[in-house]
Each structure stands twice: as C-alpha cells, then as structure tokens.
Design a protein around this nucleic acid. Structure first.
Lengths: 366, 366
DNA sequence: GCCTCCTTCTTGAACGGTCAAGTAAGGATA
DNA sequence: TATCCTTACTTGACCGTTCAAGAAGGAGGC
C-alpha cells in the first residue's frame, strides 16, 4: 500500500538521530513537561525529517491499556439511523462529549440496509476487534444478538433508551409517563376515540395493525412503554385498549405513517378516531399528511400528537403537540457516565409536554 | 471502572488453564484451521470460564500492523453532516463496504456545532491517536487544517469530493460538467434571467450575495466547480456572470435558501430571474417554498433546478429537475480504493441529468 | 560543605498478542 | 524399511510504546 518508505520510523530511530534515549523522545511527544523546551524542539525536528508522525497508536494503547475511543453501537441500519433527527442530535451530544475528553468515536452498525439480520454474520468480529474503552448501546431491541458479545468484553457499558439490562448503566427518559401526559392532554380536550401510530415493536420491519400477542411480545421497550403509558391514561378515563387500534410502522418514516393512517381516516365520521397518538414527530407528520389528503382539518377534525420535538426543520410543517426530550443531552450524559471514575447506574432525563397547533378541543356531536 | 476482575485474563492464562501453549490459544481464536475442532472447543470453554473475551485488539494490531478500522473525516459539524441525506447515503456506502471487509469505522469530526474552528484545538490528537489503516476525507475545504496532520500519518488516503490534493487518491463526480448540463437544460427551455443559490464557498458560515473576490477565493472546490459550470454554459449563450446574482447559503438548509430567495422573487417581473440554479436539492426546495410564498407558480413563473437527487423523502415535495449522483457508490468506492492492494489515483463517477416538474419552458413576454 | 531536592535525562522491563521456525507423530509413497 | 509429507502443536523472538527506577548535575537550605 505504502511502499515509498521501506520501513516505518520508530521512537528509537528518532532517538538515535537526535542523540537521546527513546524515553526522551516518547516524552517529547506525550509529556512535554518532562524535558526542556529546547531539546523537545530538536527532537521534533529530527522526527519531522525522519517522517515520524508520533507514537504508534497500537503500541501506545497496548502499554497504557486505554484506546482513547468509545464504541457506539446502533441497532437500525445506518442510513436510517442518521437521517433520523433524533439519532442525529444524540450523536451530536456524543461527539461533543467525546471531543471534550479527547476521545474518538468508533461506529458499530449491527445491521446494514438490505442485509438480512443474522445472529453471527461477521458481527462479533466488529465487536471483538473494536479498540475502545467502553461501549454505548443506542436503542437496541431487548434480544439483540450484539448484546452478549459486547458484555463479554467486560468493558464499561452504557445503554441509551433501551433495553434495560440488569447491572448495566442506563440513560433515558420516562417513556411511560411522557406518553401518559400526551393521552391525558387529549382526554382533557374532550377526545374519546383514539388510534395509536406505533414505532416498530420488534426489529422485523413489520407494518400494519398490531394484535395483542404482538404487543405483549414487543422487544423494543421504548415503544412498549409509550404504548402502556397511552393505555394507562385512556383506561383511567374509561377508554379500553380494545377500542384503540394500534398501527405499527416499520420505519420512523412519514410515508409509511401516512399510508397506514389513510384507511383509518376514510371511515365514517362516527367510526373515525378524533385523535391520533403518534410515537414520533415524523409519524405524526405522516398522519397530518393523511388528514390533508382526506380533507380533514388539523386540529378541528383530527388532533395529532407526536413525540421527540424534532419536527419543524422542513418548511410548511404543522407545529406539533409533542414531548420534548433532550436528545443531545442523552449523548453527553452517556459519554460522561462511561468516562466517569465512579459508577452511576441510571439517569432519567426530564421531558416536557409541549402543546402546539396539532391538538385541539373536541366536541362530540354524534 | 471495572474492578470486579482484579487482573484481566490473557492468552497465557487461558493456555495454562487448558494445558496448551499460548500460540495454540491464539490459533483457537484467530486461525481455527490450525488445530483440531475438539481441542479448540476445550480452549474456548477454558476461555469462557476465565472471562477471556478474545485477543486484545491493541496487542494484536501492534503485532500485525493493521487495525481493522478506517477513519472517516468530516468537515461539517456532525449533526448537519448526518441530517443531510447526501452524507447519510455516502455513509451507508462506506459502512457497507467496511462491513464486507470486516473493518470498523472511526468517525473523526473536525468541527462541532457551536465551537469556533481552531487550528489546533485538540484536533491533532484525534488524528494522531486514530488506530486506523487509512483515512477517508469527506468534502473538506482546500485549506482545512486537518489535512496536514493526516498526511503526516503516511497512511493510505482517499479524498471524496474535495479537495483535490496532488498525489492523493480521489473519488468524485464531474461537478463542472453536471452543472453545465443543468444550465444548458434551462437555456434550452428559453430561460435567460438566472440566479444561483450556492452552497457555502468557504467554511465560514457566511450568508448572502457573493462578490467576485469571494467567488475567486472559494476554498470549497465543489461549489466553485458547479458555479463555473453554470457560468460556462450561460456565457456560451451570451448570459454574462455579472448578470447572474450568486446567493450563498451558509448551510445546506431549506430555510436559509428560502430567506435568501424571497427578496429576489419580490422584484418586478422583468427584474426577476425566471430560473434558479440551486446547488443542492434542499436549497432548491427552499427556493420552491419562497416561490409559493410570493404567489409564483413552479415551473410556470419560475423554474428551479437542484443537485444530488436526494429530495422526495418528505411528502408534498415538488419533484425536482436535478443531477443524480451515486452517493452510496462514492462511499463504497472510497473504501475499495483504500483497501485495494494496487493504488488507484482517481475515480470519476457518472452522473445523470434528471428532468422533472420543477423546470419548464419560458416564453419571455417582456 | 554536606545533605536534600528538583530537574533532566537514561536504562531495562513489561504490555499481550502473532509469527517464523522447529518438533513429534502418523500416514502415504516408493 | 526408509523417505517424505502433512497435521497438530510448541518455543522463543519481536511488534513500538510507556513506565518504574535510577543516575547526573545544579540549586537551595542549614
């Protein structure tokens, strides 16, 4: 690959050229206060002429025992993970905190688009060879096959959002409570007929109505918790789960949400939900698009709530009633917990109900 | 951090426990064909009881000389880089190709949102300590301060899009020619009054009209090449650069594009451009939004062209006339060039002019 | 003037793997 | 029966750093 220099220069080559010991050269690069500024300059100059770019990262981390890098493990396939503003803001937080600590960020994708998820397909290698000081697991399904090999590494580990693993540090929000607040908000506005637009309940890309068995066997804890929160509030107001259809979207994507919502809104007025609880802002925007297409006004004919508070980036979007959650702060917190000397087991970050134009009062005229 | 095991188990510990030599244990993990399946199982079992998760990555790469990871260097701050579908698709390509080659992906962000770009601010460390086998530089400004430290590492290096560096491998498209095609398309439709909605010409976040000096001193080569391509076509048809305002958008963002386009469209009909050449689809969508707000119909009153062919993800977007370019393929190609045994110096990927509803015939009635 | 301390530099030993070379046993070949 | 090859394993060196311990020399305290 790189045969212009037959042999890479090492610390000892530089030491020989500068007429000092190898340790002194090491100090020149890694501990400048251990030698006189003048000698350091000489050494750096010698290094430059030899084409020595600094200590070999592998040798250095072998000796020191740390790598100056954190591993970030994603569940979703990368393009989707990154086109989602939720993940993007999280990543910003991680990147910021990594930078503060002079750590690099190693991305580990557990699934790539178009690839069937396999239990072993080359994946353990990615985990086994990852030269990192700790792992951040971002929003994985409870039974994800990456979890075991990662825990086997025995490195510091923080899970963000999901899943909850016993004895493993965790950063997230109270999804149950936040969802409950949204449902209570709609109930207070007078709504009694609901539908839920759910995120995927299992990582199998299924679309459509979710039956009770599927809901009971959900492996994405966040979606399950939000659904439970909705239902708890509704049940307390006398609206039974059986009366509330749950439509599952394989992707956090407006188009799928729209496609699934359309048939629901084409029902007769008395059969139609007056409010849709969407588990993300993008799903909510899909529902809003469906309402527009069926000639329903939001919020007069239909209220819609989101989750995440990340909408509003594109123009001409309806301001959503939603739950604001600190995405970037999640990332920062995860990195902090990973690099802190004392072990913190869990952080639950605050959320806030934000009421905007997508939800409105409902007067039942039927 | 992890004091439940006082001392990490090594190959030799496992060897002692299994009653074999350390090399045999090494082979059990890294070269299964070198020993009988039965013995391998015994060794793996011994490793499991000792909590040995596999060879230490640092020690392994010190000896072998490679790391099984590639470094990806971004210019833009991370959240923007990742919310941009262009970058996201590129990353998908990189991730796919990395996976095929069992390589991990190390992210190196040169600038984080809200941080003033400094020449040295901790950055060289990120580059110096990066345990990678090569670097991919993604769309950097010509004078970016990261470039020198990276070249100093002497590792295989591929630049994607920009900048062109002598002696360094490069993957990209023919931006000049693609831009020329767009302008020729509009000229063929009868347009004679244009405006350009440009990407940032330098990484300083400036917004607004770009004067000739600024254009001449552009450090983002892609934006400069596209602008030259537009101008070459226009000049050939008798439309001089001085007659074509260039509006520079700091971010590849619809809102900024809209804000900059609005005053232009509020001019009297005879003063107004009939066509807008936007350097990205998102900028083009901003122009379309501005047209809607000023009551102009696209394409009847205003034609708009984009670049990238990445729009259409959100609903209710106008189909854009644009240049399709193979974003994911760029990523795959970059990884391939980096890992190929033979040195390839440059790959120019094919693009295609895609004509859709955002551009239409212009009959000058003035 | 002696002892101590600090600064500045040196020596030799790890760190935990992989690799080249070598050994022993068994099977095939002549 | 002797020779050669293959399979299955072992031995010892080496990858390029950092670290602990130590030595030389000058400054400062008593």
């Amino acid at each position: 690959m790189n045969d212009d220099t037959p042999q890479r220069a090492t610390l000892r080559d530089v030491a020989r050229a500068a007429g000092v010991s190898h340790t002194t050269v090491s100090n020149a690069f890694s501990r400048p206060d251990q030698l006189s500024a003048q000698l350091r300059e000489q050494i750096l100059a010698a290094a430059r002429t030899l084409g020595y770019a600094g200590p070999d990262p592998a040798a250095r981390s072998l000796r020191t025992g740390h790598h100056g890098a954190l591993g970030l493990v994603f569940s979703e396939d990368l393009p989707f993970a990154f086109s989602d503003r939720t993940a993007t803001l999280f990543l910003q937080g991680v990147a910021e905190a990594c930078r503060e600590r002079h750590a690099n960020l190693l991305l580990i994708a557990t699934r790539i688009a178009g690839e069937t998820p396999t239990a072993l397909g080359g994946l353990p290698h990615a985990v086994r060879d990852a030269a990192v000081d700790g792992f951040i697991l971002y929003s994985l399904a409870r039974n994800s096959p990456v979890i075991a090999p990662i825990q086997a590494r025995g490195l510091p580990l923080v899970v963000v959002d999901q899943p909850h693993l016993s004895g493993v540090a965790h950063v997230g929000i109270d999804d149950f409570d936040a969802a409950r607040q949204l449902a209570e908000h709609l109930l207070a506005l007078g709504h009694r007929r609901f539908a839920v637009l759910s995120l995927n309940l299992r990582p199998d890309g299924r679309n459509g109505p979710a039956e009770p068995e599927r809901i009971a066997s959900a492996t994405y804890e966040v979606a399950a918790a939000r659904l439970s929160g909705y239902r708890a509030a509704l049940a307390a107001a006398g609206v039974e789960p059986a009366m509330v259809p749950v439509l599952e979207c394989a992707l956090n994507d407006e188009r799928q949400a729209r496609d699934l919502t359309l048939p629901l809104l084409r029902r007769a007025a008395a059969e139609r939900p007056s409010a849709i609880l969407a588990m993300s802002d993008r799903l909510a925007l899909g529902a809003v698009a469906a309402a527009r297409e069926t000639g329903l006004a939001v919020p007069d004919d239909l209220s819609v709530t989101g989750f995440d508070d990340v909408a509003g980036s594109t123009l001409s979007e309806l301001p959503l009633t939603t739950i604001r959650q600190p995405h970037a702060e999640k990332g920062r917190t995860a990195v902090r917990m990973l690099t802190a000397p004392v072990f913190a087991d869990a952080r639950v970050l605050a959320t806030e109900l934000v009421v905007r134009a997508s939800s409105g009062r409902w007067l039942d005229l039927s």
